[in-house]
C-alpha cells in the first residue's frame, strides 16, 4: 500500500476544492437555513486560494504543503470555518513528523491531530451539530479499519462513509456551537453546513488515495 506523498495530498486538496466549488450553492443554502448564508462562498474562496497557492509556491514535503494550506485558509476565509479548517491543516503538518511520504498510520495520525486542532480551537463536543460531528466518526472509522488491516484506500472509504453518517446525524440535532446555536430548537431538522463540507473533505481524501491505486 502506497504512502501519501505531496502529489497525493495535492490531489486531495484539488478534489476537495472542486467538490466545494460544485457544492457551493448547497453549502450556502444549508447555511442560509440555520446561519448566515456564506459557508459556500467562504469555503470556495478558501479552497480557490489553496489551489492557487499550490501552483504559486509548490511545497517540497507534506508538512510544508499542509502548513501552507492551513495558512492560506486562515488568511483567506475568515468566519468560523477559516480558523477551524485552517487549524485542521496547521495541526496536521507537525504530525507528519517531516516524512516525505505518509504511511497510512502516519496519515491517520495527522488527520486525528487535525481534528483535535478543530476541537481545541472551537471547543465543540460530539452532538453540538458542527463539522466535528462528521470529522470525529471519520477518524475513528479510519483507525478502526487500519487496525483491522485494511489498506488505506479501503479505510478512507470507511472513514468517508462514517463522515457521511455523522453529517446526516446532525440533522435532528439542536445546535450548541456556532451561529446555528442562536436558533435554539429551530436549528433541528437541518443539516449542518460545516459537517457537510467536512464530509466532502474526507470523501476527497478517499478519492485521492483511491486514484493513486495500488503501488
Amino acid at each position: 500500500m502506497a504512502a501519501v506523498d505531496v502529489d497525493g495530498l495535492e490531489r486531495w486538496l484539488r478534489l476537495f476544492a472542486s467538490s466545494v466549488a460544485e457544492q457551493q450553492d448547497t453549502l450556502t443554502a444549508l447555511d442560509a437555513a440555520i446561519g448566515d448564508a456564506d459557508h459556500g462562498a467562504n469555503m470556495n474562496r478558501g479552497m480557490t486560494a489553496v489551489v492557487d497557492a499550490l501552483a504559486a509556491t509548490p511545497a517540497d514535503d507534506p508538512a510544508a504543503l499542509l502548513k501552507q494550506t492551513g495558512m492560506v485558509l486562515v488568511r483567506s476565509v475568515g468566519g468560523a470555518s477559516g480558523p477551524l479548517y485552517g487549524t485542521f491543516f496547521l495541526r496536521m503538518a507537525p504530525a507528519t513528523g517531516g516524512a516525505s511520504a505518509l504511511e497510512p498510520e502516519v496519515f491517520a495520525k495527522a488527520l486525528r491531530a487535525g481534528v483535535e486542532g478543530v476541537v481545541s480551537r472551537g471547543k465543540a463536543e460530539l452532538g453540538d451539530k458542527t463539522m466535528y460531528d462528521a470529522l470525529a466518526p471519520a477518524v475513528d472509522a479510519l483507525d478502526a479499519a487500519l487496525g483491522a488491516g485494511d489498506p488505506l484506500a479501503d479505510a478512507l472509504r470507511a472513514a468517508s462513509a462514517a463522515a457521511d453518517q455523522g453529517r446526516d446525524a446532525t440533522i435532528p440535532l439542536v445546535a450548541r456551537k456556532g451561529r446555528a446555536s442562536y436558533l435554539g430548537d429551530r436549528s433541528a431538522d437541518h443539516q449542518d453546513p460545516g459537517a457537510t463540507s467536512a464530509a466532502l473533505l474526507i470523501a476527497a481524501a478517499a478519492a485521492a488515495v483511491a486514484e493513486q491505486g495500488p503501488p
Binding site: 456564506d38 467562504n42 475568515g78 480558523p83
Partner: peptide, 11 residues
C-alpha cells in the same frame, strides 16, 4: 473589514 457577514482574518 471582512467579507459580507464573514469575520475578518487574523492577519
Amino acid at each position: 473589514a471582512g467579507e459580507v457577514f464573514t469575520s475578518p482574518v487574523p492577519d
